[in-house]
Design a binder for these strands. Structure first.
Length: 291
DNA sequence: AGTTGTCAAGCTAGT
DNA sequence: ACTAGCTTGACAACT
């Protein structure tokens, strides 16, 4: 069981998501920022290992505009060695890595242009895993997408698009239950047709479920992970008291976390914390994580 | 130097 | 018809 955080440590001052405006794009800037961001990932990963946080999510902005058509700069060759080095370190230390393309990546959209740009972004993530030389236990995590007033058709479109994805993308792809449209059960339909495993999101489950218990939902999600996918991943976060439903909490509620770990005691999984203060909460949760 | 506005991209739900 | 929010930061433009 591993635990980790997203992006940049809140304790250390590392930066892996320096960005610039599309309007000011230049090859020089592109390579400069990419290099700094890759160094930022390296810093975060080294620090994470030292802190016993062995799960880490790389932000999508590492290579700025990597999947945008403006980018004709060959970052893959340029940073091959840097990625190899980081990838070797990750494997030596038995770390687990995920990425999470953001809300613009919608592969079940009825708009073919949206699907096309989404696939480009997925390929960028897959290429990064390729350069890191990481196997299919390291995941690219996405949502199912929109419902477009017809969930069944939207699920079918997702499945259809999946069948056309590259094997590099499919090796790493995972779907997450969301908080408004697609529950664990909905994701399971996609799993049955595609074999894509489900990342169980605890907060989303609490907001959107089909009446099953947390343990039932967790079991169902975990059953979709086969040997190549590795130990199931979950996203853990809790509701910020008094704010809009779905709002992630600023810091972890350690008692609640401990209860969750006890409740799920027979199960094994890796935990990605989606909590605003990142490694601060991860380090507070770490003593309760079972090895 | 510090503060505020804006950023490649989509979608839903609420006004 | 329009927009806040998703999650969130960090750059760019302003005071």
């Amino acid at each position: 069981m591993k635990i980790g955080y997203v992006g940049d440590s809140k304790i250390q001052s590392f930066h892996s998501a320096r960005r610039f405006r599309l309007a000011s794009y230049s090859s020089e800037k592109f390579f400069e920022y990419s290099k700094l961001n890759i160094e930022g990932i390296s810093d975060n990963i080294t620090y994470s290992v030292e802190s016993n946080l062995l799960f880490y999510r790389i932000r999508s902005e590492i290579i700025p505009f990597a999947s945008h058509e403006i980018c004709n700069d060959n970052w893959r060759d340029k940073f091959k060695t840097s990625f190899e080095k980081i990838g070797t370190f990750i494997q030596d230390k038995c770390m687990r890595i995920s990425t999470h393309p953001d809300q613009f990546i919608v592969i079940n959209s009825p708009n073919p242009d949206t699907v096309k740009t989404s696939i480009r972004e997925l390929q960028y993530h897959a290429d990064m895993f390729g350069l890191l030389n990481l196997n299919s236990s390291h995941k690219i995590q996405i949502h199912v997408g929109g419902a477009y007033d017809n969930k069944n058709e939207s699920i079918k479109r997702f499945i259809k698009t999946c069948k056309g994805l590259s094997k590099e993308i499919l090796a790493h792809l995972a779907i997450e239950n969301d908080d408004r449209l697609f529950s664990v059960n909905d994701c399971y339909i996609i799993y049955q047709e595609t074999g894509i495993p489900i990342i169980f999101d605890t907060l989303h489950y609490a907001i959107k479920n089909d009446g099953e218990t947390l343990l039932e939902a967790a079991h169902k999600s975990f059953s979709t992970w086969d040997k190549e996918d590795g130990i199931p991943m979950i996203d853990y976060s809790s509701q910020q008291e008094g704010l809009r439903i779905g709002r992630h909490s600023d810091e972890i509620d350690v008692n609640q976390f401990q209860q969750f770990i006890q409740l799920t005691r027979p199960l094994n999984f890796d935990i990605m914390l989606e909590i605003k203060d990142k490694d601060i909460s991860a380090l507070r949760a770490l003593p309760f994580v079972v090895y």
